[in-house]
Design a protein around this nucleic acid. Structure first.
Length: 472
DNA sequence: CTAGGGTTAG
């Protein structure tokens, strides 16, 4: 086979699909050889080559996380007259989900016009896209158009309910499904967890492991399930929650060989949040492979337990080992600085965020700096800092200032800020719901009552004992 | 194996 033939280059591309430099080189060879150009006069067997090549390139760039480039490749594809097929769209839909401005609806239009809407992969991708964009209505519409949904399609709809906080519907839905797999169960557990309903998440996990799905061996909890329920255990301040977490830890040790990045991090977080820093650190050291998230969990553990200096040391160590801090890392170190009143270091880190770490500060970081200045008694500076923000502060930022006013006894400013906060109350700050660290206490109780009612109505029983998980 | 879809943390 010729080294510059489209067949060979396609094979090469598939083989090196996760290697950015190689993909780029193959891409440029393909361009110079004209292999990406659709030629109606080529032999019938190779007429689809440009489409295949473009689909693979699109997939590669999606994997690289280059959503904009992924979508741009589609316009190049159209310009080269390479006809998109049903395989083209799932990757594009995924890229559109996470790119700004949203281009999902225009993709939806393209799909309809090209008559590939009946493809089940495309339907699931679209459903999932609307779900991730918080558009439950359109997600539902897509689902209702699916003629014979199977478990994957059901799961996508289930996840749409779960991740958008409609857990009542999620529970009703999963109960009505004739087949459930581990993804179905995990979707609901993580949905509860995401909504801050940790007790319900744990309860649902307990339901899962005594359900016929699991006892018959049809379904088995996996890493995603454990991570979700461990996170709920970490966040629920009840003795039983920690106990369950430790049981799961034991179970993982007995059954899986080594801790993965996800389970290891979830466990570091668990022990850290419960104040068992030695155990958290021991786990951290045991882990063979760590991720940025692992470091984040460890830094947060120190920061939240009054060991701010150790948190900052950990941050230095992380950088020495070549890890690039992300937005969460910065949040962890900024909160450590705030707690220890290390104003200078905190401000320097905030300044370095963009210039050194290429992390764009978001609302939470600003909230952290306000907290930092406020805790140190620099209320005037905190107010100035809020005024300098490039976007409007939300309730979490004003809340940080209010907290500082209380500590400092600044009654007048406190009243002013309190009034501003009062105006925020009726709003649902939906997109910040996950930012529980700073938003703690805000927007938590609304959905909870409804969900408990739905749980009750859906006939979830009291939890019997299980062979390896004790009832709480 | 033979392009593409659903679940995971801080």
């Amino acid at each position: 086979m010729q080294l510059s033939s489209p067949e060979y280059l396609l094979r090469l591309l598939k083989h090196l699909i996760n290697h950015q430099n190689e993909v780029r080189q193959i891409h440029s060879i393909l361009l110079t050889k004209g292999h990406l150009l659709f030629d109606p006069n080529s032999p019938p067997l190779s007429i689809w080559k440009p489409t295949l090549l473009y689909n693979t390139l699109i997939r590669a760039h999606l994997n690289f996380g280059q959503n904009h480039k992924t979508l741009h490749l589609f316009t190049r594809m159209l310009a080269h007259n390479a006809p998109p097929n049903a395989h083209t769209f799932p990757s594009l839909i995924k890229a559109a989900t996470f790119s700004l401005p949203p281009s999902g609806t225009s993709l939806h239009g393209q799909i309809v016009r090209r008559g590939v809407l009946c493809d089940s992969f495309i339907q699931t991708s679209l459903l999932s896209m609307y779900s991730q964009l918080g558009d439950l209505l359109n997600a539902r519409k897509v689902f209702d158009e699916i003629s014979r949904p199977r478990v994957v399609e059901y799961n996508a709809m289930l996840d749409a309910f779960s991740r958008n906080g409609d857990l009542g519907s999620a529970v009703l839905f999963i109960n009505r499904m004739s087949n459930r797999d581990v993804v179905s169960w995990t979707s609901v557990i993580s949905g509860f967890s995401r909504s801050g309903l940790f007790r319900e998440a744990i309860q649902f996990f307990r339901e899962m492991i005594v359900h016929a799905d699991v006892t018959t061996g049809l379904v088995k909890p996996n890493e995603a399930t454990y991570v979700s329920v461990l996170s709920s255990c970490a966040n629920l301040n009840e003795g039983g929650a920690f106990g369950l977490g430790k049981q799961i830890h034991g179970y993982i040790i007995r059954n899986e060989e080594a801790l993965t990045v996800s389970t290891g991090t979830a466990l570091v977080d668990l022990y850290g949040k419960k104040g068992y820093l030695k155990d958290a650190m021991k786990l951290f050291d045991q882990m063979v492979v760590r991720g940025v998230c692992t470091w984040n969990a460890m830094i947060f553990s120190f920061a939240d337990n009054g060991r701010e200096i150790q948190a900052l040391d950990m941050f230095e160590k992380m950088r020495r080992e070549g890890f690039l801090p992300n937005g969460i890392t910065l949040l962890a170190v900024l909160s450590a600085c705030a707690r220890a009143k290390l104003v200078q270091i905190g401000l320097e880190l905030f300044q370095a965020m963009w210039s050194e770490f290429q992390v764009l500060p978001i609302m939470e970081h600003y909230g952290c700096v306000v907290d930092l200045l406020g805790k140190a008694g620099l209320l005037g500076e905190a107010v100035e800092f809020i005024k300098s923000m490039p976007f409007d502060p939300d309730a979490s930022v004003w809340g940080a200032l209010l907290g500082a006013c209380k500590i400092q006894g600044a009654i007048e400013l406190g009243n002013e800020v309190g009034f501003k906060l009062f105006n925020f109350q009726p709003q649902t700050c939906g997109q910040y719901v996950t930012l529980s660290h700073i938003n703690a206490g805000l927007q938590r109780w609304g959905p909870a009552a409804d969900v408990r009612k739905a749980l009750k109505m859906s006939g979830i029983r009291k939890v019997p004992a299980s062979s390896w998980i004790d009832p709480m």
